[in-house]
Design a protein around this nucleic acid. Structure first.
Ligand code: NAD
Ligand code: NAD
Lengths: 215, 215
DNA sequence: AGGAGGTTGTGTACAAGTTCACAAAGGTGG
DNA sequence: CCACCTTTGTGAACTTGTACACAACCTCCT
């Protein structure tokens, strides 16, 4: 395995999509070059960090000039594996699942929603934003047939681990979990958890501390 | 200002809600005590980390025994500022805003959705899950009248910064942003960004790397 | 009362991430 | 072709976060 990228730090990986977004915006406004300083400003970080992060991908800037927007966008996209689309399946067609299915942003960014999956017979067969809702019994088939790469879990917390297990068993490549519960998957299956209530609690901590120190 | 908490590291703060969730679950299953090891397992971290994290809050365990579930839950909740409710307003009553408004989990965890706010006259006046949609013109009034603590931004990216500015100006205490754009708020106003497309891109990076090293 | 068994709290070493600061290098204009 | 300006790329210092390992301490049993 020829390792082109010796290893990119996790913290850097988490910022690449932010840089990418800034680059898309610059590209749309027909900018040719961008300095690390400008990119930093647009991304809400400091310029040295931008340069160090980008240097893990390779040496794509020009001293005295900056980075070529087009070229850097290409390189960042490539590093993120966005050359081809990654079809996603959303498991759980409730409030959240349907809102996600309705969202144009995913397909736009290379993550087409290929299937909605639910256990509730009343929901199966419906279509949301042109996407059919399938029964969870067919999960394994769907993953195989549609070449699903990413499973998004939007079921109640109680079902999340079982769904994750089935997705992994079916050969999914990575998992994004919205249920407010810690789930575990085998080593080597990338997993991200997004928990909105957790985010609010973190905010609560800091605002409470602000209030205390104002007193 | 009597500083009871000399300073809790950010990484620790981010984990407290996870511990809290595990403690709620233990409490519901009538557990009396819990060891750092068990708590670690439920939270998906290692036991030393749990102990160190909890030690920032104070010394609430008993050697040889573990932590009293009830008492620790109380202490963690207090540290997070969850003694009282924090009313939230959701700005942008689209797909996502409505899904959030429909979600019971927020009120349950002490973040009642007190208002929905939109700019679109066709949406103003409707009620979602018992919550009225108000016009954005009334944003400042609503924040004051309803004692809104947290503003959730679920508008298109283009409107996010302006909405954030108005929320801050109106005296909001913290901001949770779902729009895929970096927004800035004054120092001292806690801000969290949740970007689902970013999460998918991070997954894409790692699964692509897995694929490359398998080859 | 004293010892055995078990778990916390924390000092310390280590790893990861951030920031600084500057040499190296490209561009430009004379 | 050279001096000057600008901005990158990166070693090194520093800060933050994680893991280890064990003394301190509690409970229970004999
Ligand atoms: N709605 C939100 O804004 C929101 C916010 C934060 C977190 N969440 C979390 O996201 C998850 C979904 O929330 P929601 O509001 O959409 O809930 P919901 O009850 O509206 O939807 C859940 C859906 O999952 C389906 N389901 C249940 N078990 C299943 C299984 N084993 N396989 C497939 N489908 C199954 C149900 O039939 C239902 O359609 C929950 O875990 C919730 O805590 C939701
Ligand atoms: N829907 C999703 O699943 C999803 C997923 C990820 C991110 N997002 C992001 O969340 C945001 C909302 O997404 P959505 O799908 O709900 O979009 P949407 O278009 O359905 O809803 C946006 C709402 O905001 C309102 N709005 C526009 N400008 C406003 C303003 N200045 N003040 C108040 N309200 C205003 C619009 O009238 C509309 O009702 C977007 O930024 C989107 O990128 C959504």
């Amino acid at each position: 395995m020829a390792r082109r990228t010796p290893t990119i730090p996790e913290a850097t990986v988490a910022r690449l999509p932010i840089y990418r977004r800034a680059l898309v915006e610059l590209d749309e406004s027909s900018a040719i070059n961008v300095s690390s300083e400008r990119l930093a400003e647009m991304s809400g970080v400091n310029a040295a960090k931008v340069r160090k992060d980008l240097s893990y991908l390779g040496s794509y800037g020009t001293r005295g000039v900056g980075y070529d927007v087009d070229y850097l966008l290409f390189q960042v996209s490539r590093a993120l594996g966005l050359n081809n689309d990654w079809p996603v399946a959303i498991v759980g067609s409730g409030n959240l699942g349907q809102a996600l299915a309705n969202y144009r942003g995913f397909t736009q960014r290379g993550f087409p929603v290929a299937a909605l999956i639910d256990v509730d017979d009343k929901k199966v067969g419906a279509t949301v934003h042109g996407i059919e809702v399938h029964h969870v019994d067919r999960l394994e088939d769907l993953v195989a047939e549609l070449g699903i790469a990413i499973g998004i879990i939007a079921t109640p917390a109680g079902a999340a681990q079982a769904v994750a297990d089935r997705l992994v068993e079916a050969g999914i490549q990575s998992v994004l979990n919205f249920a407010p519960v810690v789930i575990s998957v085998p080593d080597g299956v990338p997993l991200r958890q997004v928990d909105l209530a957790t985010e609010l609690q973190i905010l609560s901590f800091y605002q409470q501390r602000n209030a205390a120190s104002d007193r």
